[in-house]
Design a binder for these strands. Structure first.
Length: 498
RNA sequence: GAGCCGUUAGCUCAGUCGGUAGAGCAUCUGACUUUUAAUCAGAGGGUCGAGGGUUCGAUCCCCUCACGGCUCACCA
């Protein structure tokens, strides 16, 4: 930015700042002690009082916040003070605060911070209001706030200057508060189920555990390139080998891929691993997590997402992927079939496929293109083909499929889980098959993590694992249109001077 | 990465079939001792995203670029 160009309003505010200094008032003031609660507590306590009772009790409160609206009329003024609890109106009279302080108030701008002490009363319109006895100037705002009525609307400014969005758009402010509450509720659920929260490296030598391109960075002292993690999976499984039995990590991962309303290069996942669980146990666990998150927003666990009512109160449906395909398309992949058979079916149903795909890839494509969008209410789809599930345990009855599931809601995936593969020899073969796929054209593959295979060779107990996209879960629960609306500072191109 | 759309005052938006721009809020001056998108009277504020082209003349038409949004493709 550099030296800014001052517009008329910025010049006036700087002059007012100097005028305050000339009066011995620090325009960027000091500690203030709101001895009372925040505005929302005052509303909770006194909104139901009638005017007479308030007058009789003469309750005195002290609050601090940003003045976001000002309605002056001669020798009295009303204004709105914004703190983290919301807004509360205050009332300043020249005959109460005195000529000097009243003039300072008249000269103050929307955006300035004030400390207010006064008694509570109700206006004619019935609004709970603080009649100021003492006003304390706390901080000058040198720039004007966005339009008080429309708020900040330009999406670019909303994301780049989130602080302005938070000041003027209360829905946005509240959504971020809800985000934190949801994450706390999820942690509480995991803790109550005897999972240990852990932290594993973000800087990795091998970016594995998912199929995604990593961000590359450089460590100077070691003179090696390192990768930002794309998943926490293989680290957490090592902790299962180490005997921690139930672990989870909720944190940031990074994927060097495109951006759109559902993808940001950095985002939060929660992965959980529990020894001796199979994927059915993990379904129960997942259901508990989503119910706990929904409870934060709605006591009856009914969530409205873009006009669709989602009921998280009922038990979530559970359906095999092949059955789901059969239900929605009539195609039966339970039958033994060759690659040629599968390709023929794909051609008949307009499902596109790559030359290197096996039958399992085509089954998955059927699901993704013809079934997925139709799944509105929470449903677990399980039994993914082995070819697309390199870290999942093979199903005992049918070796074409794995003990894996994904949770689908409003046509989108919200969780991915499986009974973990703990056979190191099988694991190595699957890594090698992935590497071969890469050579054949799949450019997102998992590099062979030798150290992880070695860990498995020491023995990992049967384990159920789960991954949840936290941002998408928050979007769902807060009816957000874009992932950028649940991230304070979504990734943006740097703004160049033009 | 491709297609479509957007960028005008601090903010939210109009507008000019090509003749260098308006409103509301905000700001400034004045009035007003219960307002609440306060009201009333007056005033100031813009290299119309950047660069180039066509033209007597471009904020408007054309080209390039920057940033953003949406859709599609890939991914969670």
């Amino acid at each position: 930015m550099g030296e800014e160009k001052l517009n008329d309003q910025m010049i006036v505010r700087r002059q007012k700042m100097q005028a305050l200094r000339d009066k011995g008032i620090d325009p960027f003031g000091h500690r203030f002690d709101p001895d009372h609660d925040i505005s929302s507590d005052i509303h909770t306590k006194y909104d139901n009082y009638d005017g007479d009772l308030l007058a009789k009790e003469g309750n005195v409160v002290t609050v601090a916040g940003r003045m976001v609206a000002k309605r002056g009329s001669g020798k009295t003024s009303f204004a709105d003070l914004l703190d983290r609890g919301g807004k509360i109106q205050f009332y300043v009279r020249q005959d109460i605060v005195g000529d000097d302080d009243y003039q300072i108030f008249k000269d103050s701008d929307i955006g300035d911070f004030w400390g207010i002490t006064g008694d509570l009363f109700k206006t004619r319109a019935g609004e709970l209001t603080i009649r100021a006895h003492k006003i304390t100037f706390l901080t000058k705002a040198l720039r004007p706030l966005p339009d008080k009525y429309h708020g900040l609307a330009d999406p670019e400014l909303v994301y780049r200057q989130r602080y302005l969005d938070l000041i003027t758009n209360r829905d946005s402010f509240d959504r971020f508060i809800t985000r934190t509450k949801i994450i706390k509720a999820i942690r509480r659920y995991m803790d109550n189920n005897h999972f240990t929260e852990v932290e594993t490296p973000i800087l990795e030598n091998v970016a594995s555990g998912a199929e995604a391109r990593p961000f590359v960075t450089h460590h100077n002292a070691l003179n090696i390139d390192m990768y930002l993690r794309i998943a926490t999976e293989l680290r957490l499984k090592r902790l299962i080998v180490g005997g921690m039995e139930r672990v989870y990590e909720l944190g940031r991962v990074f994927r060097n891929e495109g951006m759109d309303p559902y993808h940001n290069p950095e985002f939060d996942t929660m992965e959980t691993y529990a020894a001796y669980f199979d994927f059915n146990d993990v379904m129960d666990e997942t259901e508990g997590i989503f119910k706990a998150a929904a409870k934060v927003v709605a006591n009856d666990l009914k969530i409205n997402y873009h006009g669709t009512e989602l009921d998280f109160g009922k038990p979530f449906a559970r359906m095999h992927m092949v059955d789901a395909i059969k239900k929605y398309t009539g195609v039966d992949f339970w039958q033994k079939m060759s690659l040629e058979d599968a390709r023929k079916l794909a051609d008949e149903h307009g499902v596109e496929y790559e030359s290197w795909w096996k039958v399992g890839h085509i089954i998955n494509a059927f699901f993704e293109t013809l079934v997925q969008d139709k799944l509105q209410q929470p449903i677990f789809i399980y039994g993914h083909p082995k070819e697309i599930s390199p870290l999942a345990h093979i199903n005992r009855e049918d070796h074409r499929f794995t003990d894996r599931f994904e949770l689908y809601i409003v046509g989108k995936e919200y969780a991915n889980a499986f009974t973990e593969l703990n056979d190191p020899i099988d694991q190595r073969q699957r890594f090698e098959a992935e590497a071969k796929e890469h050579a054949e054209g799949n450019d997102e593959y998992q590099p062979i993590d030798e150290d992880f295979v070695e860990a498995l060779e020491y023995g990992m107990p049967p384990t159920g694992g789960l991954g949840v996209g936290i941002d998408r879960l928050v979007m769902l629960m807060t009816d957000a249109k874009s992932i950028r609306d649940v991230l304070f500072f979504p990734t943006m191109r740097p703004k160049k001077d033009n």
